[in-house]
């Protein structure tokens, strides 16, 4: 029992009550969850049943994707290339494609399904998405031309740069360097302009 009942009562009225559910909203129906829960993870969670071959994928890709990404997934205009660039990540101009950069194939399934079958893209069935991915693996020289991708063999495919990513380490590598007393006077002996906007006066 509180020794300060009036204060406690005042606090109860003053602060939002969050520990107990308010009973707002309603339970989501299984069909509703199925309609929206489209995400796919690297461990295969979320992948639908289905399969598609490189040959089928080439046909679908040329019909539905090539207008922006090129027949060989080389990219058109500023729309991205999806193939090539392997071994360029330390170059002056690295090429970041599914083959050279992306860590997980599941990301491509998820993205094509969520964003490339509507809006910019064309509707595609689950089998067609598997086929497009098979063709993109082939375009990146990662599988042979008779390869068939399916839910069953999906997680056995590892992209070349899977191990090239690491968790943000700024707290260890940068924050100690940049947490210091700042110099306020005579911090340099002289200063020169070293770079200007191209074509400026």
């Amino acid at each position: 029992m509180s020794r300060f009942p009036s204060l406690l009562a005042a606090l109860c009225f003053a602060l939002p009550v969050t520990a107990e559910p308010l009973g707002l909203g309603r339970v989501a129906e299984p069909d509703e969850i199925a309609a929206w829960d489209i995400d796919v993870r690297p461990d295969g969670l979320g992948l639908p049943a289905g399969s598609g071959s490189v040959m089928q994928g080439e046909e679908v890709f040329i019909e539905k994707c090539a207008v922006c990404h090129g027949d060989f997934a080389e990219g058109v205009g500023r729309y991205p290339a999806l193939a090539g660039g392997l071994g360029t990540l330390q170059d002056e101009r690295p090429m970041r494609t599914i083959g050279s950069f992306w860590p997980f194939l599941s990301t491509a399934y998820d993205f094509i399904n969520r964003a490339m079958t509507v809006g910019y893209g064309e509707p595609a069935s689950d089998d067609e998405i598997y086929a497009i991915l098979a063709y993109l693996l082939y375009s990146n020289d990662l599988v042979d031309e008779d390869f068939v991708l399916s839910r069953e063999n999906f997680t056995s495919i590892h992209l070349p740069n899977e191990g090239g990513f690491y968790m943000d380490d700024r707290a260890q590598t940068e924050l100690p360097l940049f947490t210091h007393d700042a110099c306020m006077s005579d911090c340099k002996t002289d200063v020169e302009i070293t770079a200007r906007v191209p074509n400026s006066q």
């Binding site: 995400d39 796919v40 993870r41 690297p42 990540l89 330390q90 690295p94 970041r96 599914i98 950069f101 992306w102 860590p103 997980f104 599941s106 990301t107 491509a108 998820d110 993205f111 964003a115 740069n161 090239g164 990513f165 690491y166 968790m167 943000d168 380490d169 700024r170 940068e174 940049f178």
Partner: peptide, 28 residues
């Protein structure tokens, strides 16, 4: 985590050594 497009192929930070920082959420 899901490792979706905008947290792997985009919004990740390619370093000079060819390796890539992921999940660089905080703005310095």
């Amino acid at each position: 985590p899901w490792h979706h497009r905008e947290e792997s192929s985009k919004y990740s930070d390619l370093m000079a050594d060819g390796r890539t920082r992921r999940f660089t959420w905080e703005m310095d």
